[in-house]
Structures are given as C-alpha cells and as structure tokens.
Amino acid sequence: MVSIHNLGFGYSKKKPVFEGLNLELQTGNVYGLLGRNGAGKSSLLRNIAGLLTPTSGQCTVKGHTPHLRQPKFLQELFFLPEELHIPPISMKEFVSVYAVFYPNFSQNQLNEYLKEFEVDSTARLTELSLGQKKKALISFALATNTPLLIMDEPTNGLDIPSKSQFRKIIASSITNERVILISTHQVRDLESLIDPIIIMDNREVLLNAGADVIAEKLSFKTVQQVTNHEKVLYSEHSIRGFGIVIPNEDKSYTKVDLELLFNAALEKPQVIKQLFN
C-alpha cells in the first residue's frame, strides 16, 4: 500500500529531517508510529499524505505519487491531523459538504460511530468540546472507508471512556483492504491496538515489526534487582521493581511493553536495528 524508498526530506538543505528512509506498509494493519519530539513523525505523515515534497527518494501510495495531490489519490486517503479544522456548521451539513468527495463513504457507519462515541450530531461542530469535535471527525474519517487512514495523536483530548471506545471502533474498522497509521506519544492508550510498531529516531526508522516478532526477539520483565547488566538493553525503576528489556534468548514469550520498547530503542538504537533488520 505505502512504499517508501530512500526517502529524504528536510525543511532546509543543511538540516535534513530524515535521509534514506525505507518503509513498507501492508494492508490489514494498524501501524503505530512512535518517536520522540522532532524525530520527524509528522513530517513523515505529511510526506505520505502529499502535504510535503521529498527532497530525494520515492514515496508511493497505491502507485500514486502523493505530492502531486491528484483527486484520485486524495480519494484514497484521509488524514486526521492533531489540530483539527472545524468549520462552523453542523455535523449533518459537514457530511453533506465533505462526504461527496469520498466514493466509499457510508452514512450508516457514520451513524454507528457517532452513536458509539455519544456525539450530538445535531449541534454545530464549533460548539462541541475538543473531545467531542475529535470524536466527530474520527467517526467521519472512519466512515470515508479510504484505503489509507492517517491519524496524528488521535487520542489527545479524549477522556478515558472515549479512548476505550476509540480502540474498540478502530479494531472493528480495520479490513484487509485498509491501512491505518497512527502517530502517538500516548503509547499506553493504544498498546492493545497498534501492531506493527514503527519507531523513528535520529532521521531513520529503528524498528518496523509486528508484536509477535518483537516478542520473539525481546523479553519484557519486571525484576526486583537488575543483574546481568551487559545483557539488559534498558531498565527503569517502577513501584514493583525494575522493568527491563533483554534479548529473548530462552524463547519465553512476554507481552510487549511499548513504553519499555520505545525507551530501549532510544537507549540502544544500534542494537535494536541489528536485531530487527
């Protein structure tokens, strides 16, 4: 679906955001894009969406070149940015204006999602709370049924019940023809949802792997005392002891802890790259 080869991008020639980036996104997955602030996550999303033009390399989405922004390509994509554009109209009017641009839009699905999220569809969008606005647009985004759905920090502004509804709705809306790419800092919110995981740092992709592959290669444990320091990729103190990440040498499968994985990738980027490439 999304194919990125040797992609380079920078806002100035002296300071590239990323160089030689390679990435493949396959249908049927909810990808989680993780990275620290300034790692280039949003720039990558905008390159995929065609809002930015790569300085080198190639990025294609279903064979389209995104930065040409041709209608045929734009019909296949819905991008939900972190900051939303909300016109001063009701949800009904919003649908009447925007849905026509998306040939696979489903009004029934939209009604279901709005009901699930408990959004008042009769109110003007600008009169809704931030969380309600976000839920209204998430519902619309999902109902467009575009093959590629990109979301930048979708859970920001959502309360705890809404985050759980969000996970439920996303899990039910993924199909074999669709890719959902979610960039987030709130890894705990989406831990059970995103798989595969993409971690970006220092202008490159450190890891792009499914939870099963990660669990096969790494163990996530809580121990009272950290021993065997040379093997530990990352450790952090918690109330229950120490959370550690170590290579999975005894093939005992543990649940992937995204926060530990992310911190381990930032602490030992080369080790993580070698393990997964």
């Binding site: 065609g50 922004r69 734009l74 940015p81 900051e83 939303l84």
Partner: peptide, 18 residues
C-alpha cells in the same frame, strides 16, 4: 491562514485547478 485549515483544504479530493 491556518495550518489545519490549509491541510484540510489541500487534502480535499479535488484538483488544484478546481
């Protein structure tokens, strides 16, 4: 005049000319 509205406008499935 505003980044989110620019993004929304540019990503509307229509050509630049339209």
């Amino acid at each position: 005049s505003h980044t989110p509205s620019t993004m929304s406008y540019l990503l509307l499935p229509a050509s630049h000319l339209e």
